[in-house]
Design a protein around this nucleic acid. Structure first.
Length: 112
DNA sequence: GACATGACCTCTG
DNA sequence: CCAGAGGCCATGT
């Protein structure tokens, strides 16, 4: 909080705060940080998530459509899908069906 | 030092 | 309703 070190820090904080079995979106995180149009950067943070001191559940971060866009960046197959399914998410063809049910919004959950 | 790209989203015409 | 362009931050070449 109140750490203006960078957007990345905020993204990691939110992603790390995402509970198991829940998924969030890039726009929600960007919006929570105060930049509704900085969704791109969120994806960039995920790309560098491996540089984070702690593991970042990037598999719980999907696009607005509930599509596993970054699944290609995890291992290249359906590891991300299996992980989410293991947590209780219903995914098919890289798309989350019950995304609405497991959707976790930081602004709504954490509150501004 | 500057240009181009990146796991995207939102707004306007 | 559909389509197009802009925006944001950081990293790499």
């Amino acid at each position: 909080m109140t750490q203006n070190k960078g957007f990345f820090q905020g993204v990691y904080e939110v992603v790390l705060l995402v509970p198991s079995g829940r998924v969030t979106t890039y726009g929600a995180i960007a919006r929570y940080l105060g930049s509704p149009g900085a969704a791109r950067m969120v994806g960039w943070a995920m790309n560098q998530s491996h540089i984070s001191p702690e593991y970042v559940p990037a598999h719980r971060v999907v696009n607005r459509n509930g599509l596993l866009t970054g699944k290609h960046h995890f291992d290249g197959t359906h590891l991300m899908q299996e992980m989410l399914e293991n947590e209780g998410a219903v995914i098919t063809e890289n798309r989350i069906l019950n995304m609405k049910e497991i959707f976790w919004d930081p602004v709504k959950e954490l509150g501004l």
